[in-house]
């Protein structure tokens, strides 16, 4: 346990000093900070559009950070040979991998908290203090965080056996696929008239590709009239879905990494 924590803390220490990540984060923060300024110029009715734009910036920035952070995770350790000293200590490979994963989660938490903080300040300045509004606004970043934890697990899983560049496209691709097409495939499954082959493909994709779209809850904010029944239960459900998926990915990653030559 101690080992996992040490490795996670070290991973966080490295991440917050990685220049690439800091640049991406800075771009995100700058966009969040200046976007409301643009909003002032537009009509009052567009506030909701602005809000979803801000959330979109956070989401996109976080996704890029999650991928860039994790695709190098294992390859860098091997290339710099830092992994050898660690594995020559009483550290099991699964502990190492979990440490790396929790380090990624911690790094995402820190960076996303920073962006969300800037978002809250921007919202406050524009709308004045509004506790209910802030609370509604914060639901989205929390769900994004779960989404990014899932994306990080994908990136780390692939980083146990593919190169960073390939991994970048694999993880990024799965994220886009899972964010956009998953709902489409689910519709297809629900449609009794869909051809059998299409249904089979849809089932496979639905199982393999995590459904990132579950976590994109900014839509209800844009369309407040669409009320999800029993919101809380829905959140618990999609969180459990995320945790289960992450667990499966980590187990698979550990199995591969255990046999891997480093």
């Amino acid at each position: 346990m101690k080992q996992i924590w040490s490795i996670a803390a070290t991973t966080l220490g490295e991440a917050i000093r990685r220049r690439v990540l800091l640049v991406i984060l800075l771009v995100g923060v700058v966009f969040i900070a200046i976007a409301p300024g643009l909003g002032v110029l537009s009509a009052r009715s567009e506030t909701t559009v602005l809000r979803s734009m801000l959330l979109g910036i956070i989401q996109m920035t976080s996704a890029v950070i999650a991928v860039v952070l994790t695709v190098y995770m294992i390859p860098n350790e091997i290339e710099r040979r830092t992994i050898y000293t660690i594995l020559s200590k009483p550290v099991q490979r699964w502990q190492f991998l979990l440490g790396k994963y929790f380090g990624a989660v911690l790094s995402l938490a820190v960076m996303m908290a920073l962006m969300t903080g800037v978002l809250c300040i921007a919202y406050w300045i524009q709308q004045g203090y509004n506790a209910q509004g802030l609370q509604d606004l914060l639901k989205a970043p929390v769900m994004f965080f779960v989404q990014m934890c899932l994306l990080a697990a994908i990136g780390l899983f692939f980083s146990t056996f593919v190169s960073p560049l390939v991994n970048f496209f694999l993880s990024g691709g799965l994220y886009l696929l899972g964010s956009t097409f998953s709902l489409l495939f689910q519709d297809m499954l629900a449609n009794p008239n869909a051809p059998g082959v299409a249904k089979m493909i849809a089932t496979v994709v639905n199982v393999i590709v995590p459904n990132f779209a579950y976590y994109n809850i900014q839509n209800p904010i844009i369309n407040p009239q669409v009320v999800i029944q029993d919101e809380f239960q829905n959140y618990v459900k999609i969180m459990a879905y995320g945790v289960a998926y992450i667990g499966a990915l980590l187990v698979a990653g550990i199995l591969i990494f255990d046999r891997r030559e480093v």
């Binding site: 490295e14 000293t85 200590k89």
Partner: peptide
């Protein structure tokens, strides 16, 4: 046992003391 790899690299942001703390914590 212990191991000093060929041309080792360490986490560069760490100080000498932090290196020992980190590896110590693994034990």
């Amino acid at each position: 046992i212990s191991y000093l790899p060929e041309k080792p690299y360490y986490y560069e942001y760490m100080t000498g003391m932090e290196i020992l703390k980190f590896y110590g914590s693994l034990f």
